[in-house]
Simulated scan of single mutants.
Amino acid sequence: MKPVIGVILSILFLAEHLLAQPVTDIVSLPLQVATHKTSNLIFPASVKSVDKGSRDILAQKAKGLENVLHLKAARAGFKETNLTVITDDGKLYAFTLTYHEHPDPLNLKVGVTSHKFPEALSERPSERELEEAAMAVSGKPTFLTGKLDQKDGVRLQLGGIYVKEQVMYYQFLIQNNTALSYDLSQFRFAIRDRKQAKRTAIQEQALPVLFALDKAERIQGGQSQQIIIALPKRTIPDKKILLVQLMEENGGRHLSLRLHNRHLIKARPLEMH
């Protein structure tokens, strides 16, 4: 009887210890993949299991290298999905996957600071913090005018930019003034040269979307939708622009905005109450 009581006490002690541990958010890292290029994830330990959020993602471990995972897109233009990887050392890694013709970076060493985000991963805002800040921005007034694009009855407009620590939050308003629904395919951001010389390949640096609030997949006719996009804080050299592209699924009503540094430096500090 005494051994049984001892086991029960041990279980209760372990349960109390686990419940006392703080709960932390696992940040989902943004990652781009394409059909014609292979992206490589390099982990500090062997890959034990891989869970894909969609069949549109192809994943396999590198032959002879248990800590390297190859990724490709099964089809172009797939909708945003996720990937979860667990390694032999018991760590879990989460990724948000989007399609891009020119993935950047192609090779990512997981567990070290990404060159696209200036602070260490431990200092990066959690998913919950990003969501709370984005919700605060959604209730803020718009203050930027003139930056809009419209085509065939659909309009994309930048309403404002707010900044909190190392993240900038962009307010966008999409209006569908037609009877036809507008299906969103991609919302992408890239730094590109302001002027492109003829016969020269387009050089651009894609920016990772850290968080998107109210990213509706469809905007019905006669309706509008506000979308808040969180991107890493940055400014732009004078000879470059921030290109914002909104692509329609199975359609041609694609919209784009060309933001200059003079727009970004108008960002207002985000005050949380």
Rank of each mutant, 00 (worst) to 15 (best):
D214G: 00
L121C: 01
L14P: 00
K37F: 10
A120K: 11
I86G: 00
A45L: 04
E16T: 11
F43C: 12
F172R: 03
E249A: 10
H17M: 15
K116A: 04
V23D: 11
V27A: 07
Q225P: 01
R128V: 09
Q186H: 14
D25S: 07
F95I: 02
R128F: 12
M168I: 00
A179S: 12
S28Q: 10
Q21A: 10
D183N: 14
Y182M: 06
H36S: 13
Q21C: 10
S114P: 13
G153S: 07
I57T: 06
K91Q: 12
I229C: 01
P125T: 04
Y162M: 02
Q220E: 12
A212N: 10
E66R: 07
P3N: 09
K239Q: 13
A94K: 15
I11E: 05
S39H: 02
E131M: 14
L144R: 05
S185Q: 15
G252S: 11
L207M: 13
M135V: 08
F187A: 06
H102F: 13
D214Q: 10
V244S: 06
P118Y: 04
L121Q: 12
E127T: 02
L12P: 03
L65W: 02
A120G: 11
D214V: 00
V244D: 05
A62D: 11
E249R: 13
I11C: 14
N107I: 15
K79N: 13
G77W: 03
R194D: 13
R218C: 01
L180Q: 15
R262C: 06
K140Q: 13
R234N: 09
F187N: 08
G252P: 02
A133E: 04
L108V: 09
A62L: 13
N250A: 12
R155T: 15
R234F: 08
R262D: 14
E119T: 08
K91T: 09
P141I: 03
I57V: 15
R194H: 09
S46M: 04
F95K: 00
I229P: 02
F117D: 04
H102L: 14
R192Y: 01
H263S: 10
E132G: 00
P208S: 05
T142Q: 10
S10M: 09
D25L: 01
L173E: 11
F143K: 08
R75K: 12
T87F: 09
S224R: 00
S138V: 02
K266N: 09
Y169I: 00
P125N: 05
Q186C: 01
